[in-house]
Design a protein around this nucleic acid. Sequence first.
DNA 1: ACGAGTGCGCAAATAAAGTA
DNA 2: TACTTTATTTGCGCACTCGT
Length: 421
Amino acid sequence: MYAFVRFLEDNVCYALPVSCVRDFSPRSRLDFDNQKVYAVYRGPEELGAEPESPPRAPRDWGALLLHKAQILALAEDKSDLENSVMQKKIKIPKLSLSHVEDDGEVKDYGEEDLQLRHIKRPEGRKPSEAAHKSIEAVVARLERQNGLSLGHSTCPEEVFVEASPGTEDMDSLEDAVVPRALYEELLRNYQQQQEEMRHLQQELERTRRQLVQQAKKLKEYGALVSEMKELRDLNRRLQDVLLLRLGSGPAIDLEKVKSECLEPEPELRSTFSEEANTSSYYPAPAPVMDKYILDNGKVHLGSGIWVDEEKWHQLQVTQGDSKYTKNLAVMIWGTDVLKNRSVTGVATKKKKDAIPKPPLSPHKLSIVRECLYDRIAQETVDETEIAQRLSKVNKYICEKIMDINKSCKNEERREAKYNLQ
DNA sequence: ACGAGTGCGCAAATAAAGTA
DNA sequence: TACTTTATTTGCGCACTCGT
């Protein structure tokens, strides 16, 4: 008589002679307990023998390696058993805990046994199925920790086998049977991963929102910068237009009166015109069309300011901003005017009750700045350097005024000395 | 060659005005 | 309110010119 058994350690099922089951002598095909754990001699296949050679009943049970197994069916003939298995589903009943606990005689299998069961399978199970092996290892570990039948007793799933031993369908049986502990462990891991994923997605969304905010701020900043540039440009144009209107309109009389009172330089003054170059406190970066034009031995510096051509050419070869500015100031105002002026009209703070000297015309000062700007612009394009050098124009002119006054005082001293002699 | 005068550049001092 | 900027003045040193 043959028994169709399921080995608990690896869920492998196949038919064996009932003589391989210890203390088992069934009188009929129904004379077995499908909820009981039997000690079964798995046969010589464990040691690498051919699975086709059926194991015989052992003579000495104590010397043999026994395995826990569950009997699923009995048959007189092995082929009959296999046929019945092929044709109908075999229900794997739930094992009772008492049966397992009672079975203390069964030799416990250790790590060595777990390794042996992978050496060879009677059904030719594919050894490369690492995933199945890992699951089996987890199952075996849980069984060792919780007791042999705990994994099965707590597993309510009922698996229906529609297979015969020696086919691939035995794997589907193994796939189908998943212990609840393993299932819950995997489920917990899955839920943990999902939670982590949600957290990462929230983080990603937060970062994305921050990026959008930064981009908005950058855009606003760019708009402000362009607006500031536009306002500065408009301001310059406004200054130019105002100066132009002052020079060409009715206000020219006021400017003339003011100029004549402060700067009696008729040889340099000319009529303002709409075509004349406009000037501003900040020199225009680009050269103006009618600037530096020659006419009758004179050079037009803009806004009706003309200087001698020869002196102008000499000025162009002058080295240094200081010398250039001072010479240009003398060309425009003359030493007689400069010695009685200050750059801005502010009285000296070093002497109390000092009488403030009249300021130089801001309009002509802007001409000086424009000329120096054009000169510096030929050397460098660095706006910072240009601005820094231009900021010294007032200082240079102030120094020139002081130099002229120094010379005058020295001359007066000489004259006084000469008169005394 | 030497001294005086001059131009030039720079630093320092001073005080007012502006700014953070 | 302290700090910075700006304008003005003064002084000093160096290089160059010119008369002696």
